[in-house]
């Protein structure tokens, strides 16, 4: 029996799909390919993928439109967007529209395989991902994403804008090892040598405000030499 996760790879450049299909197959996935948005919508019905890797810029129907149509139908198949959108604000928008994750072109194929595994592990079939939830709760902490506010024991906490964005990213990616470089790229939109220290400074701010002890953390765990992980159990709330 074939119980490999089924991945639908959607990109109009055959040079890309021709390279990535064998790569992802060797990485342990069952892979099918569609060359534009319309073809993808048709393939999704027959192939029923566990996850879709979706390029944004494509002829006929672009990736954003595919994402919108699927989510409007209530189809919550996990989607990783392949983007080259530089601004973190636009990428945050993509997540709010219902993507589970995104990866910037050009990327390391191993990174793509790792992200696919993470999203598959995190996704609960048929359910919207945490990345589209408006309010999230972890223990005593509640994050209201549209209002960009956070509450601890129902009392609003005061965070700098960057610390708020960082908390939002952490709580929507629970139980995932997030390297400093990835956090920089996702939250700050740039990665420079000093950047890793910038991340540490904001993590320290979050811990101070949340009263989280790094030695016995409730929320943010340090993985020495690798990055951080949000370890609190996260649930959607209203």
């Amino acid at each position: 029996m074939n119980n490999k996760p089924k991945i639908l790879l959607v990109d109009d450049e055959t040079a890309i799909t021709d390279r990535l299909q064998p790569f992802l197959s060797r990485a342990g996935f069952d892979v099918d390919v569609a060359s534009d948005g319309e073809a993808a919508l048709i393939k999704i019905v027959s192939y029923t993928p566990d996850l879709i890797v979706l390029d944004v810029l494509m002829p006929r129907m672009d990736g954003r439109e595919v994402l919108r149509q699927l989510r409007q139908k209530g189809d919550w198949t996990p989607i990783i967007l392949l983007t080259q959108v530089g601004e973190s604000a636009e990428r945050a928008m993509a997540l709010m529209e219902g993507a589970d994750d995104y990866i910037n072109k050009p990327f390391d194929p191993n990174e793509l395989a790792a992200r696919i595994k993470t999203v598959l592990r995190r996704a609960s079939p048929g359910q919207p991902p945490l990345t589209v939830a408006e309010r999230l709760r972890s223990g005593d902490l509640v994050v209201d994403r549209p209002k960009r506010r956070a509450y601890l024991n129902a009392i609003e906490i005061n965070l700098s804008p960057k610390a708020m964005s960082l908390l939002e990213y952490l709580i929507t990616h629970p139980d995932e090892l997030l390297s400093r470089d990835r956090l920089l790229d996702a939250v700050w939109g740039w990665d420079y040598p000093i950047g890793t220290r910038t991340v540490d400074t904001r993590i320290a701010e979050l811990r101070r405000v949340l009263g989280d002890d790094p030695g016995d953390p409730q929320y943010i765990e340090t993985i020495p030499g690798q990055g951080y992980r949000f370890i609190g159990k996260v649930e959607k709330t209203s």
Partner: peptide, 14 residues
Amino acid sequence: LKNPLTVIRAGLTN
């Protein structure tokens, strides 16, 4: 540049 670079990186990894 993004698509050619994606192809080259994937090809080299293969």
